[in-house]
Design a protein around this nucleic acid. Sequence first.
RNA 1: GCCCAGGUGGCGUAAUGGUAAACGCGCAAGAUUGAGGUUCUUGUGGAGCAAUCCGUGGAGGUUCAAGUCCUCUCCUGGGCACCA
Length: 984
Amino acid sequence: MSYDHQKIEVEARKKWAGLSLYECNLTDDSKEPYYLLCEFPYPSGDLHTGHWYAFAVTDIYARMLRARGKNVLFPIGFDAFGLPAENAAIRNGVDPAKWTLANIERMKAQLNAMGVSFDWSKEVVACDPSYYHWTQWLFIKLFEHELAERREAPVKWCPKDQTVLANEQVIDGHCERCGTEVEEKRLTQWFLKITQYAERLLKNLETLPWREEIKEAQRAWIGKSGGAYLDFEVRAKSGHRMSTLGSIRVFTTRPDTLYGATYLVLAPEHPLVQEITSSKFEIPNKDQIEKYINETKKKTERGRSENKEKTGVKLEGVVAVNPATKEEIPVYLADYVLNSYGTGAIMAVPAHDERDYEFAKKFDLPIREVIEPLFIKMIGSDAVRPELPLVERRAVVAVVKHATEEKYLVLKWKKNDWQGFVVGGIDDGEDAIATGIREVHEETGYKHLRFVKNIGGRIHSQFYHEVKQQNRYAHFDVVYFELIDEARDEISEEEKALHEVVWIAKEEVSKHVASDEDMAFIWERLQTSDLYTGDGILSNSGEFTGRDSEEAMWDIVAAVGGERTTNYRLRDWLVSRQRYWGCPIPIVYDPQGTPHAVPAEHLPWLLPTDVDFTPTGSAPLASSMELKERVTGLFGEGWTPEYDTLDTFVDSSWYFTRYLDPKDSQKFSDPAMMKKWLPVKRYSGGSEHTTMHLLYARFFTMALYDLSLVPVEEPFEERYNRGIILGPDGAKMSKSKGNVINPDELVGKYGADAVRVYLAFIGPYNEPGSYPWNLDGVVSTRRFLDRVARLVGRAEGPPMSKHGPRAKDIGGPHMDVGLTMSHIERALAQAAKKVAEDGDRFKFNTGIAALMSLLNELEKAKQVSKQAVRDLVIMLAPFAPHLAEHLWAKLAEGESPDASDASRESVHQQPWPTYEPALLVSELATVVVQVGGKRRGEITLAPDASEAEALEAALALPAVSTALADKQPSRTIYVPGRILNLVP
RNA sequence: GCCCAGGUGGCGUAAUGGUAAACGCGCAAGAUUGAGGUUCUUGUGGAGCAAUCCGUGGAGGUUCAAGUCCUCUCCUGGGCACCA
């Protein structure tokens, strides 16, 4: 027997509509407030699986919290400005407003069909003038406090469509609509100064109880790096002499490598480039430079980084002076340097930076090593012993290649298992090559070596020398030899006893030297390049040579008059959009072109409707006569409107405050309600909003907090990112793959409740995983709901009022043996606890599992009290709201209506089942008996049985005595109610 | 390349350091049924007749005891990415 989901869904919704169950009374102080928030959707018109997952599952928690006595605010609205409406207008000539509002109506109906308990009385719609009135008002507040400003910035421009493109409309550097190559154009645009808040946005993350990965993503996005500004004098040729032209300021995180800076690189957009090329100075390759700058302009910043091959051009006739070495070094333009980060200029240190290295190799620039690696052994038997002094030694590592084969010489030390290349101390007056030859001869007998090269510079190593029993601080030269022939002298017995000489094939060497960090480093360096990007000991660095690079870094900055500073990857937030369907920027310009905020009495600053959407090369609002006339009428001749609209992320940066006072025409929100309800207790959303939306909303709140407009600095106390639902094939759902599951179809077939329960049951909600959609899963959750319906059908027992006897008091003679009423009571208590607790952690999958277990117990019982079934239905109600409502009514059939329950007509008004805490402690516990950690049996005891009792019971088990072989355990570990481990 | 999160039956997954696989799907056998479906019962990690042994990506380690803690490693997913 199966319930008729379509019928009961319609009936339930009819009932709820009459009761206004979900409307939150914001001013009710009798209950604890709980603000549960879902990201408001874009009204695309279709509710897809992702929406179901986002809203239906979060709704379970909203309903659960209401049952548990909280005053729950669970609002919803629409993020209704945005590109799709405008695209529809361009394609089909429909009015974006009409298109959007029609979609909203359709989505509302779909949302209600999910059985979601949103409080529609708080609804906000971002494109409604009553909402964007306050988006504009808040923007003006930011403008008045100089947190919004105008600046020139590039936009992506499609020359064929004559239109500005949003970043997401640029596919691989081409226009998504016509495929034309995208160009960059500079326009004066509005920015919000989020960078001023970079440090606070970063700092506050420490105190937010969010998942580490969400915080980490935000940290990466903010991208803080400490470093210094250093100034390089620039000289250029004028006539026959070089004369000073000024200085170039660079930003570097590695001022310790300054002595290795062998050239400078400027971003092609760097202001000095313009200055130099247009000045009287002689730049022989001016044409070449201009050509390069133009080529760069065509590329988007993205395109510049996609082409990994380094490009650039030398600024001929210009040199810079390295402030440390006083050397003249060349200056290049290259697009691997971005004008928007740091100062748009870098000092290039090819020996210690990967990108500079690549560039230097390509343009044949000098590579000067100034950092030598230092290895300090921290673990193992050769770890430095802190109590002993360090003994410094000059030494050599000799890497020797076999004469005829691709094999390398490795020594295996017998005493301590160490293996590596030949190592030896340099004697007085000896050079590294001679030392290498001598050591190889002494230790291996080979006598004909050909010196090939030094590998990199010196390396330094601190370790404990086990044979010599002292701490060593060795400074190694690394020399590479090839064997000329295999001629070999006999080696001394003494050396033979120390180590074994082996030849290792090239591929195997890394395995043999892996255990020793410096040997592994040497081998790696021989195989690849002489690039080293780590810290270490300074070399070739004048007075700083020999010092630790990290420790000497700020002294070097001071010595050249540099300035310590911090840089952020985060850029100011560009909010101007050359679009129609967005919030108009409430700014007008006076005849001199100075921007002024539209006075508050003229807000909302309405979006004009007489607009031509056909792309003409200027912003759509520029075509509105009404807007022009409005401005002239209000402010006078010569005044002009701002034609850009705001990024939709601005709309969504404050909507959660509007829910607290959605209809207010006097202020953006109510201060008392904000004080009571903010921050949002739990914010449920998608991981795609981890950086942009979440960071923007945090910035907005922080800025408004500073302006005393909101009472909290951080808007969201908890943030839960949901996983994603994949297609049945395990791939991301997409129309082109044909693996899209349409929820409507399943809802029609199995009912909204079965789909809700399935989505909740599929896995933990708040983990970043992804779950393939499995059709059988919906069938199985429907089966579970059918079983509950059947159980209600056979429920018996005396009618129970709220104040009547609890189930345990009415046990009586018809109980099944072993399934006493108290057994059922226990099962109910455990479920009530677990479902609530798992709900708090958004682990609805195990919550449902607990309900299924409870159902299994109730089904096993021959007689089930109505009270027990009622409790089950109440706990099921958040998951399957329609069915629970139906079953609740069925359970009440034939009972005389109790006056005191008039307000509890719906199952969704019922309190969560309560239970005696004592019921959670079972009478008997199964204790596992282990012998030596292996399971040998189990005993059943009272949960608080003593160790002696447990031991006695355990020793009575044959398997235990066999395993003990009649010996007494030397030790016993007893965890009451869990385990008894006997250690022989 | 760098950073983060994960790897557990045929599948989704569950396990405060304490019986690995709860709950469900699938599968198998049986009961009910005129048949199919539904429903119900039982079984279901691997090897073995059994006692028992082996099992949480792999290799080590800590512990009386490790899926869980530590080290290394491989794989998958996500974020960032020429950010100086």
